[in-house]
């Protein structure tokens, strides 16, 4: 049974992480149980579903949408979503004339409370560079064809401002309630690399 090994030597990098955590724990700077909670929180409880509920509410409630577009952070907090990296949110509305897409050109600034942790490609240097230089081409690689007469706006998230896209409501969804609408909203739609 070679596939069952507890005792594979730990990688150099895993040992570095362990050393940091142990020393900070011994000095009382961190609590391992609190770190467990953070891991659990980001892996299972926050994520794109939070953002999807924000979008569904905005599609359903014009007053909420107006609040979201005017000042996103308190509007998002109305639904109970706030916290680290979600303090300075801006919602960008996609329209028939404008398609918005979000990047962090320097690192990986991303609105954790509404979208969870960023996907692998969001952190990749090619995405970070190319979405600025040739957004239509990159969007096409995501399967998103933006019509020539639509303006594409690329937004650079930072530590100060974090963007999420309010996608256009898909046609034929007039009869759906918020829960059904939220199920249509994807993470990539809220980053702006896909349309819904």
């Amino acid at each position: 049974m070679s596939g069952h090994r507890h005792n594979a030597p730990e990688s150099d990098i895993a040992l570095r992480v362990k050393a940091i955590e142990q020393l900070l724990t011994e000095k009382g700077i961190v609590d391992p149980a609190a770190i467990d909670l953070v891991v659990d929180y980001y892996e299972t409880r926050v994520g794109p579903r939070n953002g999807a509920r924000v979008v569904a509410r905005a599609w359903s409630d014009p007053d909420y949408k107006a609040r979201l577009l005017a000042e996103a952070t308190p509007a998002i907090a109305e639904l109970g979503f706030s916290g680290l990296q979600g303090e300075d949110m801006v919602a960008l509305e996609n329209t028939p004339e404008v398609h918005n897409v979000v990047v962090c050109t320097l690192c990986s600034c991303y609105p954790w409370p509404v979208l969870g942790l960023p996907p692998v490609w969001y952190k990749s240097p090619p995405y970070r560079a190319r979405i600025v230089r040739e957004p239509r081409a990159v969007l096409a690689e995501f399967g998103t064809r933006v019509a020539d007469d639509v303006e594409v706006r690329v937004w650079d998230s930072s530590a100060e401002l974090r963007y999420m896209v309010l996608p256009m409501r898909p046609a034929g969804t007039e009869g759906l309630d918020e829960e059904a609408l939220a199920a249509l909203v994807t993470r990539d739609g809220m980053i702006g690399v896909t349309a819904l």
């Binding site: 996907p119 090619p126 993470r187 990539d188």
Partner: peptide, 16 residues
């Protein structure tokens, strides 16, 4: 050209 496992579903497929 994107050296990434692009998500196969929209809602959070690729592992963080």
């Amino acid at each position: 050209r994107l050296p990434a496992d692009l998500p196969s579903d929209g809602a959070g497929g690729s592992p963080s």
